[in-house]
Amino acid sequence: MSRFQTTRWSLIEAARDDPDRSRAALEELCAAYRPPVLAYVRHSGYGRADAEDLTQSFFLRFLESGWYGRADPERGRFRSLLLTTLRHFLSDQRAQATAGKRGGADTHEGDVDVEQIAGGTDPEVAFTRAWMETVLERAMGRLHVECARAGRADQFRQLSSTLVERADAAELQAQAEACGMRANTLAVQAYRMRQRLRQLVRLELLQTVGSREALEQELAELRSILDATQ
């Protein structure tokens, strides 16, 4: 999987010098991390349709205006870059909307649907949780692919449900019997799968940060947000 071999930060750096060459990679990146952006916009008070449009135009602007060029891969993280840029983008949008209203231009104001804001969650929290969900989903997807390649797609299906649940001995035994394996084998497989998932999550995150130190910081920050929003 070549896309995991180059960090996204290096793609962003390359895009600064040669936008055409990295355009495809950046587009892929933006497609992957569209959900957190959409979540932020939705929780900022926009209706579904508006949010979809705004997200689309945000990524277009992000790619075309070269905002990513301002990022400092040595210190920054892709997540914070995306969030900061998005915050500015939305505040610009609001300013334009206000100006447009004064000038009588056509605006999206009518689409703003405060009722639909899910639970009134803070947009940044919504963004971060969606971000984690995306990372986790990508890691799980990759784990699935790896298992399938090793001819263990069935095992993946069985075990993905037990990754976080506490399986007592009897439950484990029953599950093992159901698939004709020893309980011990199943336990070890689940254990290895958990291990691999953790590795894949880190690999995924490593693409969005500049260094291993930054990775640990990123993990700690994500965990604290996770704890705070429980």
Binding site: L136, A139, L163, R198, V201, E216, L219, L226
Partner: peptide, 16 residues
């Protein structure tokens, strides 16, 4: 396909 599960997230994003 995998509903966001805080416990799974804790496991996956746990300290290295």
């Amino acid at each position: 396909r995998w509903r966001f599960d805080p416990a799974l997230a804790r496991l996956a994003f746990g300290p290295s």
